[in-house]
Computed example of a mutant assay.
Amino acid sequence: MSLEQDIKQEKFQNEFHKASINILYTGSWLYNVHAAYLKKFDITPEQFNVLRILRGAHPQSLMLADISARMIDKNSNCTRLVEKLRQKGLVSREIREDNRRQVDIRVTDKGLAMLKKMDLNDRGASFLSVFENLTKKETRELNRILDKLRG
């Protein structure tokens, strides 16, 4: 379905305006698809982002500031997200003996197992299935254009 049909708007100021609205609309749509998929695992997209970051650092731990700096949504309350994940047993927090102000955070085996379960679906049943109508070449081009836009 076209953007015009989805948002019921026929005209845009120009193609740049349309592209801007299209990116915002598509980002929101993709977020909602992702959130619906993650609901099966009882986590939010923001919590998934924290787990993804910690898995990337595994087996090393990260401090809260390191996680915050790597978040997709910079407005996320990282402290609250980590605490929710800790309560679910998906991450651990450890106060450093040599610096009581530093808290090391790492993904637990349970968290890694859950991420692996999500990954097993790859494009099939996962939220990545929304990309199945794009080729790898088109996906690379999309990534190149989005990187160029932010550059």
Results as ranks from 00 to 15, higher is better:
116 K>E: 13
133 N>I: 06
110 K>D: 10
130 V>N: 01
115 L>M: 11
127 F>L: 05
124 G>S: 10
138 E>N: 09
120 L>Y: 11
104 D>R: 12
121 N>Y: 06
120 L>H: 10
129 S>Y: 00
122 D>Q: 12
134 L>E: 03
105 I>G: 04
132 E>T: 11
107 V>Y: 05
133 N>D: 10
111 G>N: 05
107 V>A: 07
105 I>L: 06
134 L>V: 03
109 D>L: 11
130 V>C: 05
107 V>H: 01
121 N>W: 00
114 M>N: 05
129 S>K: 12
111 G>D: 00
110 K>F: 00
124 G>C: 02
112 L>M: 13
103 V>F: 02
109 D>V: 09
119 D>T: 10
132 E>K: 12
108 T>W: 06
114 M>P: 08
135 T>G: 06
131 F>L: 15
121 N>H: 10
132 E>M: 10
131 F>R: 02
106 R>G: 08
124 G>Y: 10
103 V>Y: 02
105 I>A: 01
121 N>M: 13
138 E>Q: 15
103 V>P: 01
105 I>W: 03
128 L>S: 07
129 S>L: 01
121 N>L: 14
102 Q>D: 13
103 V>N: 01
105 I>D: 00
103 V>L: 03
111 G>V: 02
103 V>A: 00
137 K>N: 10
113 A>Q: 14
103 V>W: 01
102 Q>Y: 09
129 S>W: 01
117 K>W: 00
122 D>N: 12
109 D>F: 09
102 Q>V: 15
114 M>A: 05
134 L>W: 08
116 K>L: 11
118 M>D: 07
122 D>G: 06
106 R>L: 11
111 G>L: 06
130 V>Y: 03
119 D>W: 09
108 T>A: 04
128 L>M: 14
130 V>A: 08
117 K>A: 14
113 A>K: 13
128 L>V: 03
122 D>S: 13
132 E>H: 07
103 V>D: 01
128 L>F: 14
130 V>I: 14
111 G>I: 08
127 F>N: 08
138 E>V: 03
116 K>V: 05
125 A>L: 10
114 M>G: 03
127 F>T: 07
127 F>C: 11
121 N>I: 07
105 I>M: 02
118 M>S: 03
114 M>R: 08
119 D>Q: 14
120 L>M: 13
113 A>T: 11
116 K>P: 00
115 L>H: 05
105 I>T: 02
129 S>E: 04
108 T>Q: 02
137 K>Q: 13
125 A>R: 10
121 N>F: 07
104 D>W: 07
108 T>V: 08
108 T>Y: 04
106 R>N: 15
114 M>Y: 02
105 I>F: 01
126 S>L: 03
111 G>Q: 06
136 K>F: 13
120 L>Q: 15
138 E>G: 00
110 K>I: 09
112 L>P: 09
128 L>T: 06
133 N>G: 01
116 K>Y: 07
131 F>T: 12
138 E>I: 00
120 L>P: 00
107 V>N: 03
123 R>N: 10
128 L>K: 10
138 E>R: 06
137 K>L: 12
113 A>H: 10
118 M>G: 06
133 N>M: 07
133 N>F: 08
132 E>Y: 00
